[in-house]
Structure formats: C-alpha cells, structure tokens
Amino acid sequence: MEHKEVILLLLIFLKSGHGDPLDDYVNTQGASLVSLTKKQLSAGSIEECAARCEAETGFICRSFQYHSKEQHCVIMAENSKNSAVFRMRDVVLFEKKIYLSECKTGNGKSYRGTMSKTKNGVTCQKWSDNAPHKPKYSPDKYPLEGLEENYCRNPDNDEDGPWCYTTDPNQRFDYCDIPECEDECMHCSGENYEGKISKTISGIECQSWNSQTPHAHGYIPSKFPNKNLKMNYCRNPDGEPRPWCFTTDPNKRWEFCDIPRCTTPPPTSGPTYECLKGKGENYRGKVSLTVSGHTCQRWSEQTPHKHNRTPENFPCKNLDENYCRNPDGETTPWCYTTNSEVRWEYCQIPSCESSPLSSEHLDAPDF
C-alpha cells in the first residue's frame, strides 16, 4: 500500500466517528513479541503503523510494534495470548483489545476471545471440521467472522450471543457463557465506565472534553488524569447517577447518556465495616440517627426532602432502609433527615479504632 493510501485510510477512519484509532489497542512500553506471521514496514508514526495493521489483508493483524528511533513498524498475526513477550528497548507493543478480551459487547457479534466450551461444559467442534456436525458456517464461507479453531462465535448475529457446534453427536450446537464487557456497559453509576458512547440520551453529539466550545467548563483532561476524559466519550467524573457529557448544542449545556447496565455482578469494593473506617464509604452498619438526634429519612423516599441519592440511581452504595451512608465521598456517613427543617446531617458512627469522632462539620454537600 502506498504511503498516500495509508494516510487517506487514517483520515477516513478518524472522520468516521470512531475516534482515536489507538483507543482500540493496549500498549506496552519496552516490549516485543515473538512472531512467525509478520510484516516489517517503514512508518512515520504510530498512527500510520496502526493504519497499516487495519489495512492488512494477507493475515489478521492482531498487534504491531513500533520502533520510534528507526521509524520502523512490524505488524503481526500473534499477540501476547499465544506468543512470548520479551523486553526490548525503544519499542512499544500495541495489541488489539478485541483479541485480548474474553468478554462480549451486546450480542457478542464482535467477540474474538478463546472460550471453546458451551455453557454446559461441552467442548466446541472446530469450525473447519465436518464431524460430528456438518457446519453451515465455516471459515471458507465466512472469512470475516473470526471462525478460528473451535472458539465461540456469533457469525449469524444471534440475539442470544456467541455459540458453537458441539463435539456431542446428539447436540448440533449450543450457546456459550461469555461475560459482558464492563467498558461497553456500566456497573453501579458508571463511575468507571470507559466505553465509547458519545451521544446523550436525546441523541445530541457530545462535546470533546478538551474543547471549551460551545460550553466552557472545568473538566479539562489534564487536570483530571484519573477520570479517563478521552475524546467526547460519556463519563461520570463527579458522582452523578450515570455518565454524561457537555453537548454540542449551544442551548443544552449537558445531558445524561443512555449507557446500558451490565448484567454481570459489579466488582467488589473491598471489605465492609460495622464501624467507622476512614471516611466510612464502606460503612454498612445500621445507625440511623444524626449527630443532633434526628431520625434519618429512608433513601428510597422523597419526603420530606427530594433528592437523587436513591437506591436506583446508586445501586452499589448500599442505600438500605434509612441507615447512615457515605455515597459521595463526604467526610463521614450522613443522611437526609425526617425533620423538614433540616435537610441533611452527619451521623455519629463509632470508630473502628474506638477513638472519639470529631464533631466538626464542614460545608454542606452540593446536592
């Protein structure tokens, strides 16, 4: 492929709305890969090397390594799942996430992992084999569907997800139990969502986080390096009920995004306590009185105080009954009160170290 064609491919890719092509790769500094199927090419940049990997038709390009000093590019069919990695100076290894991932997005049409057993534990038949079952879907007939070895795939876009022909002569096919990818759905309130949805719930395109037009804001990616504010992807950097973004509509500053909830259990957030440890974010005790003796309002109720800290909006914060909790990183657990004159107040939680709690109150949370 000529140099101009590679650049044209890269420009088309960027304009197509897919964002930065390197977002689809995991990179490892100072690593190289033992590869039997590869091509060595010259490339003026990492992005050009990625474009050459995308354009390769002689084999499936799963990774590439870029030698910055020599501006040298090696595209490869292997990755670290099936080939040895060794250290090499001045080299960066880029591996396509899709071939490293063992989870599915949506119905798993794009799944390229290595699960090779059905949900009932039966070994899958190789897609290229004709026994015990003669396949309708084979690598020759469907070369773009990733029908490698005997890995679970979804070549027919089945709504029930990836499947395979089985090695049991009495059962032609069965589905595979592939977990959902957490970066394409959200656990909890989407605080750790890293997917690429970039439209709001009403369909408005999101504004890039590093842009100040049409809306000026303080969520600059360089100031919040741990919030993954990339491109114009929906994120939840401030503890909202779900991911959101500033919009490209001058008349609509921001709006929530419609991110599907993961069906798999959320990751554990560490041990829980019946006493105060740190700020009490993992406190799961049953104290339901504030420091002034007010009874706490139930988190699921909206009287006497309306609020958005509901169990539905924050399903991982254990907002049970009317127990004191710390769902938003306050200095200590708190609750809304049943006194219509007192919206919220901190709670007196016994310390795990049996030391007296400070009764100092800081500024009220901005609810």
Rank of each mutant, 00 (worst) to 15 (best):
E345H: 13
T105H: 13
T290P: 09
P143D: 00
E48F: 07
F59R: 02
D238P: 10
R284V: 11
A43F: 02
G17E: 03
M1K: 04
G285D: 04
N282T: 14
D140T: 13
T248G: 06
H133W: 06
D249C: 04
C61Q: 04
E194P: 00
H72I: 03
F86S: 14
E191P: 00
S101P: 04
F367P: 00
S110T: 15
E345G: 13
P143Y: 01
I259S: 12
L10A: 12
S211F: 04
Y273L: 03
T268C: 02
S101H: 09
C245R: 10
S128D: 07
I98K: 13
P143F: 00
L22R: 08
E70C: 02
D366S: 14
P333R: 08
S198F: 05
E281Q: 15
L10F: 11
G278M: 06
I60G: 00
C73E: 03
G17R: 03
T166E: 00
M186Y: 10
S222P: 02
E281I: 02
H294P: 00
K126R: 14
G44Q: 07
Y142T: 01
E159P: 02
E180D: 06
G293M: 06
C206W: 04
F64H: 05
G58Y: 01
L11P: 00
Q207T: 07
N27W: 09
P179I: 04
Q348S: 15
L22I: 06
I75Y: 04
E281K: 15
W299Y: 03
C206Q: 05
F224M: 13
V342R: 14
G195D: 04
Y66E: 01
S189C: 05
V342M: 14
P241W: 12
M231S: 14
R87E: 15
N251T: 12
T37R: 08
T123S: 15
P143M: 00
S63H: 03
P135I: 00
S83W: 01
T332P: 11
I220E: 11
C152Q: 07
C245A: 05
N228P: 03
K223M: 15
Y193E: 06
Y66W: 08
W127F: 09
M76R: 10
L11D: 05
A84C: 04
T247E: 07
S198D: 12
H217N: 08
Y142F: 13
H3S: 11
N82P: 07
E184K: 15
I201N: 04
L276N: 05
P135H: 01
D24P: 00
I220V: 14
W344Y: 12
C53E: 09
K223W: 14
K223L: 15
I201V: 12
E78D: 08
Y346F: 15
S110H: 14
E56Q: 12
P315G: 09
C181D: 13
H215F: 08
V92P: 00
L14S: 11
N154P: 09
N79R: 09
M186W: 09
E2V: 01
C164Q: 09
P135M: 02
K4W: 02
G30T: 03
C103G: 04
S35L: 06
S42G: 06
